[in-house]
Amino acid sequence: MKVWGLLFLCLLQFSCSSQVTEKINGVSFVASREKVQQEHIDPVVAVNANYAAVMPFGFIRSLSAPSVVFNTERQWFGETRTGAKQYAQKLQQNGIKVMVKPQIWVWRGEFTGKIAMENEADWQTLEKTYLDFILTYAEMAEEVKASLFCIGTELEQFVKQRPQFWDDLITKVKERYSGKLTYAANWDEYTRTPFWEQLDYIGVDAYFPLSESKNPSKVEMSAAWQKWKVQLQDIANHTNKPILFTEFGYRSMDFTAKKPWLVDRNQMEVNLKAQAEATQVIFDEFWKEAWFAGGFVWKWFIHHKRSGGAGDNRFTPQNKPAETVIKKFYGDYK
């Protein structure tokens, strides 16, 4: 009987290993030109966040250009190694855990998921420079004892066409960084990402389309989430890894749930209520799930007082009703 009891406990532990008890209530902490001061961290504490994503950047000239340029004097302070480290340490001094999430920016803002080289020589150059980029920040993440490290963001074609590189990259990151790992897959990419078994979280940038309505109701958005939830839970169960929304959020504008990934500077009418309600729905639908780890609101600027506001139709929830929703939920759901 003792043997059977021990076996049962082991099986129970295995079946529950992907379940999460403490949620990641995060903000995506946007890099700036300057050092972070305490006044920049206070609003993050005030919104009851327990995590922040620190995002240094590398740059590529075009979708087929092979070289990742990073950590240069021409970049903003927060986009560099020194800046990202200072940001992380200041956040940690305030009890905020950190995910280091190095990201690529393609000139003119072209979608990183389409980065693909035209010949083998260029692929090898991309691999070498991207490896240098990621290992630089993996080592920095280890220096500050960051709780999470993200090995890439929305790089579907790179992942699809060079799978061995990514297996090798993960091995090399683990040699330098001892914390938890994830990758930020786009909402329409994560089901095809091949290396989840090697990471700790299934990272998803959660810009799932929910409604064609100009002003969608909470009931409508909740119903639309159900098909996406089934897919997310299925992959969590299959891999025995929790889902982490490496980015989530909505524009404060009409049709906010139609194409939530839109980053263009359109003149769509400001709709603060739609942003707040879409944010509430995503909390209500996911944070109660044992297979869900939490997420990082996109996005949070360091100059809180002059960010967002009633006339802004962009992603940030700052100084909008959505900020109140986040503050209450993060405060209640620790």
Rank of each mutant, 00 (worst) to 15 (best):
E22M: 12
M253G: 00
E220P: 12
V68P: 14
V27A: 07
K320V: 10
R306F: 03
E22C: 05
K97M: 10
S64V: 07
A224Q: 10
R192D: 07
H304G: 01
V297H: 00
Q124E: 10
S64I: 09
S64P: 00
S252D: 03
A310I: 02
V47L: 09
P66N: 13
E79Y: 11
A53E: 05
L210N: 03
G26W: 02
Y190I: 00
N319M: 11
A141M: 04
L9S: 13
E79R: 05
E39Q: 13
V106S: 08
G5K: 15
T182Y: 06
F158H: 10
Y201M: 06
F165K: 06
N319E: 05
V106M: 06
H304C: 01
R314N: 10
G294H: 07
L232A: 10
A121C: 01
I326Q: 07
Q233S: 03
L169C: 06
K85E: 14
I151L: 12
A121V: 02
P163V: 02
W300I: 04
H40Q: 15
V263T: 14
E120P: 01
A116R: 13
L199A: 09
V69C: 00
N237T: 09
F286D: 04
N186A: 12
R108T: 10
K258F: 07
R108N: 15
Q164S: 12
T193L: 11
C10M: 15
S67K: 12
M253Q: 15
L169M: 05
T279M: 10
N237V: 09
T129F: 04
V30E: 04
S32D: 09
V54K: 01
R192I: 00
I115E: 08
K288L: 06
G58M: 04
E34A: 10
P66G: 08
F286A: 02
V69W: 00
A257K: 06
L7K: 14
M140F: 03
H304L: 04
K128T: 04
Y137P: 04
V204A: 06
G249H: 07
F158D: 08
C150H: 02
K328S: 12
F70Q: 06
Y201A: 07
A146M: 03
I202F: 01
S67R: 12
L148I: 06
Y130R: 04
M1V: 15
K218R: 10
R74N: 13
D254K: 11
W76C: 08
S62A: 14
Y190L: 03
K2D: 14
K114R: 15
R314T: 13
A236C: 01
R61V: 08
M117P: 15
K334E: 09
V100K: 05
E79P: 02
L12E: 12
